[in-house]
Each structure stands twice: as C-alpha cells, then as structure tokens.
Design a protein around this nucleic acid. Structure first.
Length: 917
DNA sequence: GCAAGGTC
C-alpha cells in the first residue's frame, strides 16, 4: 500500500456486529465516530477518520453475520428425484449468497464500490478466513481494483465496554500491520464444506428413499416427511449413544465378593477398604475372610495424612456451560445456548460460543474490576463480591487456568449487573459460587490412628455384590465424547445432539440420558455390519487432519477432495449394490437407480450382502407397499417357490456370511434351502436345470473354501438347489449349513475398537439377548413373533419371562451368562438399571437371591469385641462348634459351605489337612 | 426434504 496525501476510503468487515462496533470504538478512540444503518438491520456501518502507516483514511467498519455464502448443488440436482444420488459425488456445486443474506451483500457492494481498500476483520480461525474470501468475492465483483488486506488480531473483544489495555494495543497493531489473507485456510474450509455436502446429501437421499418406503417406521406423525439423514457429525454422535447402549444391553452381571471392615471409636467411625478391592472367587474370599475372623485384631502399619483440596471450576467455556446446565438444571444443550444467546444479546454475559476457559492475565478482574464490582449489589452474592474486593479480607484469588484459549473470546462471564429481569425465565438466572451452590464441600471426620496401634474391628463382614453395567450416556457425557473426538465445534455440538432427537434416532429420558430408538440402532447396526466406520468418529478425525494439511499448504484442496470423495463413493456404491440386490423392496420412484447400479456393477452387486436392510428388518415390519416383481432383476431369482406358489425364491446371504435360497414371500412363506457352510461365493447363472420342477430352476456357480471340503471335491461347482444335485447334498451333509449355528456376537467390526467395547458386546443376540446366536439367526424370529419386533424388543423378552423383578415387579428377561466362571448358565435380570435385580435360573427352586448387595451377604455374627476372646482358641473351632459364625444378610444361617480341597464341611481350605498333598 | 459451519 502506498501512502498518499488524499484520504482513501477503507471498507472494514468484521464477522459479527459486536466486533465491528468494538473495532470502530477502539480505532476511533470514540473521536468523530459516526454510525449509520446499512441495508441489514443488524449490521450497522461505523465511520471515522484514521491513519494507517502515515496514510490518512476514512474508515468504514461494518460486518457480516458469520458465513455470507452457502454451498449448494446446481439447481438441476437440487430436487431429490432429479438425479441418482450417486451423481451427487460429482454433480457441480456453486457458492452463492442465500436470500436472507442478500441485504448484507448489497451493503457490501454499495460500500465497496466507493472504497479503495478492503480490510478483513473476520475471526482469526479457518472459518473466519473462509468468510473473508466470501466477502472478497462479493466486493471485488463490483470493484476489481480493491486492495485486499487482512487484520490479524487476538485481542479478546466483545460486548464488554471496558476494553483492556491489551485489546487497545492489539487492535491498533492489527490495523497498522495488515497482511494478505491466507488462501490455504480458506481452502481447508472449502474442502470440508464440499465433502460434508456431497456425503450428507447422497447418503441422506439414498437411505431415506430406500428405508422409508420399505419399512413401517413409526416415528412422528407424518411418515412421508421422515428424513433419515446421514451426516459426518450426527452419525458419530449417534454412534456414541448406540455403543453405550449396547454395552449396557450386553452386560452380564457377575457376582463378586468383598471383605469390609469398620472401626468405631470415640472420634468417629472409620471404614477400611480391602486393598484387593473385590474377588470373583467366593472360595478364595471366604478363606481370606476366615483368616481375618480367626485373628481379628488389626494393626496399623502405615499412617498417611493427605490434604484434599477442592478447586473452584475453571472459567466457563461453551461446552462446560452446556454440561453444567444439563447436570444441575436438566437443561438441554440446545436450550442452554438459546438462553445464553438471549443474555448475550441483552448484554448480560459475554460471547457464549468460546473454547476459552482461562482469563487473559491482562484481564482486569480485580482492582476496580467492573466484572466483580458490578455484582456487589446482588441480594444473594453481593456481600461475597464485596468481600472479594476487600483487600483486608484477603480472599481474592485469580481464577484457575483451564488451558484453552481460542484467541477470539474470553471465558463466558457476566458483563452487566442484574438481580433478575422481568422478562427472564428461571433458566436465565444462572450464576456462580458461594454463590455456586451446586457442589458441596463433601468430606467427613475420621478418627486418627498411630503407627503400630492395634484395635478390634467393630464389624468385619463378607459381602457380595454384582458388577453393574455403565450408565447410559448423559448429555454431559455425550458432549465430552464429542469434544474428545472432535465431533462438531463448540458452537454446533448442541445442534448435532438435537438432530438425533429430531430425526427420531435417539430419545432422552428425565435424567438426560440417551437411548437409541429402534431406528437409530438399526441404522448404526446396518453400517457396522457392512464393516463401515461411518458411524464412528474416525472419518471426522481424518477429515480434520486433512483440513489441517490443507491449511498448512501440505496438501491441496483438490487432492483432499478427490481422496475423500473417492473413498466415500466406494462405500456409497457398496451400499447401493446391496440395495440393488434387494431391489424387490425398492420404491418404484427410484427404479431407474437399480438398473443403473446393476448395469454398472455386475456380479459383485448380486453377491453383496444387505446389511442395512437386514438390520432394519430386525426392528421394523415390512411396508405393504407393492413390491412389483417386475422391478426385480431376473438373474437373482433361482426358481418359483414350490411351497406358496406365489413368490420367487432368491439367493441370499445372512449376517454371518452363510448362503441360503429363500422365498420372497417371507415371512408369510418360510420356504428356505440352506446351502453348505463351506460356500465362499455363490452367483446365479443363466443356466437352467433340465430336470427339477417347478422350473425354471437357475443353476448357481459355487466356490467352496478349499480347506473346508474333502480333498476329492472340486472347489468350484455349478450346482442346482432343486434337489437333483448329489454333490451339493453330500457337501451339506459333510459341512453342514450356516443355518442358525453361528455364535457370532455383536462385536464391532472395527479392529481399532477398544477392548472394553469388544468385550462388552460378546455373544448376546441383540434381538432376544440370548447368547449363542446372532440376531439374524435368532430363533425368536422364526416363532411367529415377527410382527412384534417393530413394537420393541422388550415385548419379546417378557413373553419368555417366567419371573418378575423383586424390586419393580416388571417381567425379567432370561439371559445366558458368558463369563469365564458361569458360561452358559442362565439368569433372569430386570431391564431397569435402577433395580439391578438378577437371579440365576438354576437357583430358583431355593430362591435365596435377590438384589445386588443384599444377596448372600455374610456377616460375622460375633463381629464385635467378643470375637476377640475367641481368638486364642481358634476361630475355626468357633465356626464349627456354634455353626452360626456366618449368617446371611437376612439373618439366616449359611450352611453347606465346605472345604474346597477335600469337601469336608468341618474346616475351610486354608486349614485343610489334605492341602498340598 | 439432504451436511456442517458461521451468526441474528
């Protein structure tokens, strides 16, 4: 930029009105500042004289409101039925200013025409840089001679009128050190936008049209308007919910044993924890417990005093605000942000969308600080604010540092005093400490001990408990998961959560805990079974890495777009194939897509599995919409069904990869021919068997797994399922079929899944919750209950139940344990997490079990000082002699315990004379 | 009617 005598006009554009106002106020020093309206009611224009590097200028400062432009497909691709969804991976897109931003665009155009320079004051992050280029595009279109520059500022400026010294310095420095805008940053966002659009639109259109018409999905009033959206943020968010739900569902309670000890003295009660925590082996625990009872005098071997500090929370950022509002007020994150926005707009709090959780060292909170001073008149915490500011009180301490700083905004804090406004709802009245009554100090008094001190425990008990499943994800948990995995931004996370509810993918209970709906679970299950990670956070993580590479210039935008979209298109086409294969259920409106897919993908299409549809089948009934047979490609049909004589039989592959030929009339007609378990591939040919009837019966080209068939059989075989094929019959006899024999559980296909996740999902059928088979092979599905599936899985379970929960009275589900100690053992358990009721099926005759923590609890009846007097004579003798050393929690004597080494009931294993023999 | 990201 060259200097000059005449004053030049500079158009300054900020990302939001509040920043425009701050920049104008600071640069003008409030001298000669004029304000006028622009065409947009929110985005005013500030004018004042200013000197940049010796050049006198006439500054105009205005703003946009976030992104000025949107990315969309060209018009001819925008209607849902305008094209094959697969085309959306390469359909032309354009960036344009949407109608609600046209007034801002007009203001920019009008002002840009009359200016020589354009200075961009967008937020200094990638999105800000991208918005900067949108502004540049609009302005240079009407004035190509504009000199374009970027102001880089990190000062924390917002609606707080008390600018810090640093803010003043920063903004002036930024104005004097203008730089060119960074195209790499903007490119990274362009890439992200295009990927999100193409993936989102293609998958959403496809799965909506496919599934909504094929199934009766009971979600909301107007099923026709139901949208089954896919998005790279919303699906991983749903994934978190479903994954936790699966963990809870597949949890098998396991009994454990624990020794508890307490000691009461004049100073109070101490409770001692067993260093081993708990054991799963009853006998071991009893032996150790026995030893304790035998010699109950305890000796203090170590005394450690530790000060426990409770720190005040870090300054508030958006995610923490949402979490705390959810935890303490049960407010949804979406509602919290609405209220926060209200308060921000009215000037009561600072900008509510920030990652920052530490106050800048330069922020003046203390001496003469408006932030605290403002609060001195408050009826509840006003006196606390006064004490804080009183140097004599000495209670001032600077807020802790949370370690995050987005360099754009301070932590969320009050900016204006209010004891409550008339228009405020209860939700607007949230505030902090002494003040912060939502956490307690906790803590308790315990007696002091000295090294070597001896005492006899007041109680020494052998207790039992059962392991419990983790709780369902709360809204705060969900926000943490998203934050940790980088799903969404602080400004959008609540939107993604709300979307799950809006789309009927998940529900939230009164405790703000999320469960997937049948729809949400089916979608995740379908994608998981296809082996795709699309419901996991990795896709977003990869995208984030790529964006970083683009913003650093290490990768080009086009390169990232091509790689990512290529991968996603492969996934899409695979899904598409599966759809084509099951095209008999497709809606007529998309008939052309099927022919397109079959025509392009050939044999592979027909061999593919149909995971998404299979997953949906588990939860939803088929729709009655006509499924015209003519839509079905003839090559997939094997033969007309001889049983119902109405439908065709087609080649299918079940969840476990086993092949079968089943009737399309299912579930009305259950005619099925299972094929050998050793089949690795099966493809329908155009060859027709000349002996089997009713025909035509198309021959199938089989490939067998070499190692699974006898050596004198050919691994390749052109076979007939009509009954004439002796080789096929022999192989079925030798290898068996895949019919309901698989024991595969819902183990995530992701090899990178955590061990915990894998373990948690061992072996349980998602449908009936029994072990030993997967949901597609669930016997319950074939027992005439199919119609009940769409009404929920629990109905199925209650049908099978024979006992009710002792706590809530609800019917229990019969499950099968799959733990090392109890594999295959059946138990009943309550569906409710609160009850935690469970009972072994084989113990029902002598029903001595019940709620966790109560059942089988052993208690030393002489667990007082009297016990000590027995010590010398040997507790063992006492146990044997009195016969009531152990009593159950209900007070009943516990009998039948015996030495596990020799079986003699007169002693325990640790005292067994045969031990070590 | 589709995504996610800004923002009012």
């Amino acid at each position: 930029m060259s200097g000059g005598r005449s004053s030049i006009r500079v158009l300054n554009v900020a990302e939001k009105p509040s920043v425009a106002k701050s920049v104008a106020t600071i640069l003008s020093g409030n001298q000669g500042l004029r304000v006028r309206d622009g065409r947009s009611r929110y985005n005013r224009i500030f004018e004042f004289p200013y000197t940049i590097n010796g050049q006198s200028t006439n500054m105009l400062v205005t703003s946009v409101t976030g992104h000025l432009m949107e990315l969309e497909f060209e018009d001819r691709f925008r209607k849902w039925h305008s094209c094959d969804p697969a085309q959306l991976f390469q359909a032309p897109v354009r960036k344009f200013v949407p109608s609600d931003k046209l007034d801002i665009k007009k203001t920019l155009e009008e002002e840009a025409r009359r200016c020589q320079w354009l200075v961009l004051w967008l937020d200094c992050d990638r999105e800000g840089e991208n918005i900067a280029f949108e502004v540049v595009q609009v302005c240079t279109a009407v004035n190509p001679h504009l000199t374009v520059r970027r102001a880089h500022f990190s000062a924390l400026i917002d609606s707080n009128p008390h600018f810090s010294e640093q803010a003043l310095i920063d903004i002036h420095e930024a104005a004097q050190n203008l730089v060119p805008p960074n195209k790499f940053f903007a490119d990274a966002v362009d890439a992200r936008q295009e990927i999100d659009l193409r993936i989102g639109a293609s998958f959403t259109r496809f799965q909506t049209m496919l599934l909504r018409d094929a199934f009766v999905i009971d979600a909301g009033n107007d099923e026709r308007n139901l949208v089954l959206s896919y998005g790279p943020c919303q699906f991983p968010t749903l994934g978190f919910v479903v994954e936790r739900y699966w963990e809870v569902q597949s949890h098998e309670p396991e009994e454990f044993w624990v020794i508890n000890c307490s000691h009461k003295s004049d100073e109070g009660i101490s409770t001692f924890n067993w260093m081993r925590g708990h054991l799963f082996d009853y006998t071991c625990t009893v032996v150790i417990y026995e030893m304790c009872v035998q010699e109950p005098t305890a000796t203090v071997t170590n005394v450690r005093k530790q000060e426990k500090l409770k720190y005040p929370p870090h300054p508030l950022n958006t995610i923490e605000l949402e979490k705390r509002a959810s935890r303490y007020f049960r407010m949804s994150s979406e509602h919290t942000m609405k209220v926060a926005e209200d308060l921000y707009q009215a000037g009561f709090i600072s900008y509510p969308r920030t990652e920052t959780d530490s106050f800048s060292q330069r922020t003046n909170l203390h001496v003469g600080a408006a932030i605290v001073e403002e609060q001195q008149g408050h009826p509840v915490w006003g006196s606390y604010a006064q004490r804080l500011l009183d140097p004599g009180a000495g209670i001032w301490r600077n807020p802790s540092n949370g370690g995050h700083d987005d360099k754009a905004h301070p932590p969320i804090h009050p900016t204006k005093f209010s004891a409550g406004e008339r228009s405020w709802s209860q939700d607007h009245l949230k505030n902090y400490l002494d003040v912060y009554c939502f956490e307690s100090w906790g803590g308790s008094l315990i007696p002091s001990y000295v090294l070597g001190q001896q005492f006899v425990p007041t109680s020494l008990t052998l207790d039992s408990g059962v392991t419990r499943p983790p709780p369902l994800l709360s809204e705060a948990d969900l926000l943490s998961c998203m934050d940790k995995e980088g799903i969404g931004t602080d400004a959008t996370m609540h939107d993604h959560i709300k979307k799950l509810l809006d789309r009927f993918y998940a529900t939230k209970d009164a405790n703000t805990r999320f469960s997937p709906t049948n729809l949400g679970e089916a979608l995740v299950m379908g994608y998981d079974d296809m082996g795709y990670q699309l419901w996991k956070p990795y896709l977003r993580a990869v995208m984030e890495r790529d964006m970083k590479a683009v913003s650093e210039g290490a990768k080009s935008k086009d390169e990232v777009l091509e790689t990512c979209l290529h991968q996603m298109k492969s996934c899409f086409l695979d899904l598409y194939d599966q759809y084509a294969y099951y095209s008999m259920w497709k809606p007529t409106t998309v008939v052309s897509y099927v022919f397109w897919a079959v025509g392009n993908l050939g044999d592979k299409a027909r061999l593919n599995k149909v995971k998404l549809l299979q997953a949906m089948e588990i939860f939803f009934e088929r729709s009655n919409r006509p499924a015209g047979e003519e839509q079905h490609t003839s090559r997939e049909v094997i033969r007309p069904c001889g049983l119902c004589q109405e439908s065709n039989m087609v080649l299918k592959q079940n969840r476990d990869g086993n092949f079968m030929v089943g009737c399309l009339g299912y579930p009305q007609c259950r005619n099925v021919v299972w094929l050998p378990g050793s089949v690795s591939e099966a493809a329908v040919t155009t060859n027709i068997c000349n002996s089997c009837t009713p025909g035509p019966v198309y021959l199938i080209q089989f490939k067998f797994r070499r190692l699974e068939i006898p050596p004198d059989y050919n691994a390749s075989h052109l076979g007939c399922i009509g009954g004439c094929d002796e080789i096929l019959k022999q192989l079925i006899e030798i290898c068996g079929t895949g019919n309901r024999t698989s024991a595969r559980g819902r183990v995530p296909t992701a090899s990178s899944g955590s061990a915990q996740q894998s373990n948690s999902r061992q072996g349980a059928c998602i449908y009936c919750h029994q072990g030993g088979h997967s949901s597609t092979d669930c016997p319950s599905q074939f027992s005439g209950h199919l119609g009940a599936r769409s009404r929920g899985r629990n109905v199925q379970q209650s049908d099978e139940s024979t006992i009710s929960c002792d706590i809530c009275g609800a019917p229990c589900a019969l499950r099968t344990a799959n733990t090392a100690n109890n594999r295959g053992r059946k138990f009943y358990s309550c569906q409710s997490q609160e009850c935690n009721f469970f009972v072994w099926e084989d113990s029902l005759n002598n029903r001595s079990v019940g709620r966790s923590g109560q059942r089988s609890t052993m208690r030393a009846s002489a667990s007082n000082s009297r016990q000590g007097s027995d010590r010398g004579r040997g507790g063992r003798g006492a146990a044997r002699g009195a016969g009531v050393t152990f009593v159950s929690a209900t007070g009943d004597p516990v009998s039948g315990r015996r030495c596990f080494v020799c079986g003699d009931p007169s002693h325990f294993a640790n005292n067994c004379p045969n031990r070590g023999n």
